[in-house]
């Protein structure tokens, strides 16, 4: 089961995630000018919204992680050391 969370404080209301989602799992709340998760059941875990989000406000949990066939190994080795 996929869980998706949008942190309201970080959402800038750009609607990129709403526009890019292939399954319309997200919608836009006009009153608060923030994106909201509408039907998380529809989420296919493509992570498009997470990558397009300018503030990194969208977090997914429980999705199937596809192994990337190219990674910047030089950096990936250092990544866990970042404070």
């Amino acid at each position: 089961m996929i869980h998706m969370k949008i942190r309201d404080a970080a959402c800038r209301g750009c609607r990129f995630c709403v526009d890019i989602c292939p399954t319309d799992a997200l919608s836009f709340d006009e009153a608060t000018q923030k994106a909201v998760v509408e039907t998380v059941e529809d989420c296919i875990g493509c992570l498009s919204c997470g990558f397009i989000c300018p503030s990194g406000a969208i977090r997914h949990e429980g999705h199937h992680v596809v192994k990337n066939f190219y990674r910047n190994l030089y950096f990936s080795r250092r990544m866990e050391k970042f404070l």
């Binding site: 750009c14 609607r15 000018q33 300018p54």
Partner: peptide, 19 residues
């Protein structure tokens, strides 16, 4: 573990992203 996020600067900015 430090309590830090990996947000971008936009995550703290107050400006509204409109079209």
């Amino acid at each position: 573990e430090p309590r830090v996020t990996q947000d971008s600067v936009c995550g703290r900015c107050k400006r509204q992203m409109i079209k």
